[in-house]
Design a binder for these strands. Structure first.
Lengths: 250, 250
DNA sequence: CTCGACCCTGACGTAACGTCAGGCTTTAAC
DNA sequence: GTTAAAGCCTGACGTTACGTCAGGGTCGAG
């Protein structure tokens, strides 16, 4: 013997020692990604050391989430590394944004369902439509960057905090209305307390970012009637009351 | 005439007015998700109003990223809303984590490539392996929760900041070594400045979280030799110098 | 010689459609 | 009335990275 020597592995051995399945090795062979450099007479795949190295390279690149085709191009040198990574990063970023938005919508829907555990399908659909139309309205008033900031802030605050803030609005609005009905003075302590709460809740939303705050005001101004009827948003009278309270403070 | 009245739509019309493709309607018909309640003699699909409503419901649910099968079960009442949403939320969360981790690994790899625009494939693979083994080492020392915190912090800091911090370490370590070589006094002003920088960089990592800091110390202590040789991490002598400088300050 | 472990190829399934291919129907123009 | 364009039909393949059989050879041990 001594023709060539060198250790070789059969599929099962290689699969075991690398943690992948036999099927995966078949698959990579089929794609031409990792081909055994020899076969036995009966057709068994025989992987040499160079093949194993190539397999490890493929697995490392796969770890980064690269598509197998791109991995093949990389290893064959028919594709540059830098641009590929850049494209992949951009792709991942887009996926992140998409998933985060989905997650935010889901949270909104879930927030609207607190209470009755059993919601009818009809109500549920209505709720989803509301969430979607709100989403679209919001998209029209905020830039992509602002939306990304908002999504990040939401992720940071956590679902619970957001649910609490959302639940706090109707309560606060109701109390503002009571104050108005009772003829409270915008400069008085009750109104000042309400205005402070109001600003606090708003701050949870925009986090001190003036751009966000302005966009929110524009959206609210343009859609006041719709928001009031459909989502229990503040009425113009309530907005005026808060504005007057803020003005009185300065 | 006058048999039943009621408006009906052909596929193309419905597709146009809802923004989906004809193929999608075919697909939903095939799945039994939205079936036209009538057909012409020649086989054309005729969608009645109820069908259109069902289609809108499907599209709304699809917006949430639910799989079509789940949508069908929801609309048929054979599946409850709450648990479904919860499962879907959890699924999205898992995806987020996975993508964020991928993205972090990619950033690490990209950070290791700054400079030479053209990196050889071999070097590149070596780099990826490094990143992966670091990743696995880290995973062994931090809890899942801590890892999630770290990922979030990284996302917040932004790629540039992280790259700057990573680039700052070797520089700082080199200067610490110079100070040691020069026989600097750990209590002296030069050493105090270096220690302050050191703590500042560390703080960029753990953000004041003691749990994170402790885990990091444990990892560094256990793997000091490996880190030093492979990634230019601080040597025990350098760590001691910084420790002495900190001790001198108190 | 046989049995169990291991190997082979080939093919279907996955999610949600996109994209032909080949052929019938309806509609609008001429 | 005819004809061409537009619209509709069904059926089937392709996409991603394999999982999961099915049917059938091969190899080593007893």
């Amino acid at each position: 013997m001594g023709t060539q020597g060198g250790q070789v592995w059969k599929v099962g051995q290689l699969a075991n020692s690398t943690g992948v399945t036999v099927r995966t090795l078949h698959h990579y062979d089929h794609l031409g990604l990792v081909r055994p450099s020899a076969r036995t007479l009966s057709g068994y795949r025989l992987y040499a050391e160079s093949d194993v190295e190539r397999l490890y390279a493929v697995l490392a690149l796969r770890q980064l989430g690269l598509p197998l085709e791109a991995i093949g191009e990389l290893l064959d040198g028919s594709s540059a590394i830098g641009p590929l990574l850049e494209r992949h990063s951009a792709c991942l970023d887009r996926q992140m944004v998409a998933i985060r938005n989905l997650r935010a919508q889901l949270s909104s829907v879930a927030a609207g369902m607190r209470g009755g555990q059993e919601v009818s399908v009809t109500d549920f659909l209505e709720l989803i439509r509301k969430v979607i139309t709100v989403d679209e309205t919001v998209k029209a008033y905020f830039t992509d960057e602002q939306l990304a900031d908002l999504a990040e802030r939401r992720a940071q605050l956590g679902e619970d905090t957001i649910a609490r803030v959302q639940a706090a609005w109707p309560d606060l609005i109701a109390r503002v209305q009571s104050a108005i009905d009772a003829g409270a003075d915008p400069a008085g302590p009750q109104a000042q307390g309400l205005a402070a709460e109001w600003i606090g809740l708003l701050d949870q939303f925009h986090g001190g970012d003036d751009g966000l705050r302005d966009s929110l005001y524009r959206m609210q101004a343009d859609n006041a009637a719709k928001f009031e009827v459909q989502y229990g948003g503040p009425s113009p009278a309530q907005m005026d009351f808060i504005k007057a309270a803020n003005a009185a403070r300065h």
